[in-house]
């Protein structure tokens, strides 16, 4: 009887410690940090203005696949993927895939002259004060979110993408 009690006490104490440590590890290493958008999440809506001053709302793209890219002119890997993105954009636009390239809080003029120089045809959005960038939990750029036609993030990638990869991604979000 006494021995049985002892085993119960030991089990309870070990379980309590394991539970506490497990939860701490979970919140610290595995849990979705609040505000960090990841694959599987619903893409948070936002409203930003493009270089022409038009308001663009993510929600309006429901039904289309959205290739959401975060970039800046001081980020070389971001610049590297731009020409391929533009090429694929022209190919997939008719198939219902849109590119939204969010500039991470640079002056409009800097972003605009860059877009002109690279002859970018997709909308470049200005994120003044990093509001949307922070909301999506974007750290080092470039970061690309693939959003399907239902507004769900199916992948997040932090790499500079090649033409082949972009092509493959576009196919995945094509409605």
């Amino acid at each position: 009887m006494k021995k049985k009690n002892r085993l119960v006490v030991r089990t309870v104490i070990l379980a309590a410690v394991l539970l506490a440590v497990g939860y701490t590890f979970y919140t610290n290493f595995f849990a979705n940090d609040s505000g960090v958008v990841q694959a599987g999440d619903k893409a948070p809506n936002f409203i930003l203005t493009d270089l022409e001053g038009n308001e663009v709302e993510l929600k309006d793209y429901r039904g289309k696949g959205v290739f959401l890219n975060f970039w800046a002119t001081y980020c070389e890997p971001c610049k590297d993927e731009m020409p391929a993105m533009d090429k694929k954009y022209k190919e997939y636009k008719e198939k219902g895939v849109e590119i939204l390239a969010v500039n991470v809080s640079e002056p409009k003029l800097t972003a605009k002259s860059f877009a002109d120089r690279y002859k970018l045809s997709f909308p470049v959005l200005l994120d003044k004060g990093n509001d949307v960038t922070n909301h999506y939990g974007v750290g080092p750029i470039p970061v690309t979110f693939l959003i399907d036609k239902d507004g769900k993030v199916i992948q997040k990638t932090e790499a500079s993408l090649s033409e082949e990869v972009i092509d493959e991604y576009m196919k995945r979000i094509q409605p």
């Binding site: 800046a72 001081y74 991470v104 809080s105 640079e106 002056p107 003029l109 800097t110 002259s113």
Partner: peptide, 22 residues
């Protein structure tokens, strides 16, 4: 007219004018 603006100016590896940061 402001044709281009580089907040943190430098020349990159390719010799193009660019900005290091914002």
């Amino acid at each position: 007219e402001v044709m281009d603006y580089f907040p943190d100016f430098e020349f990159n590896d390719k010799g193009e004018p660019t900005t290091k940061s914002k």
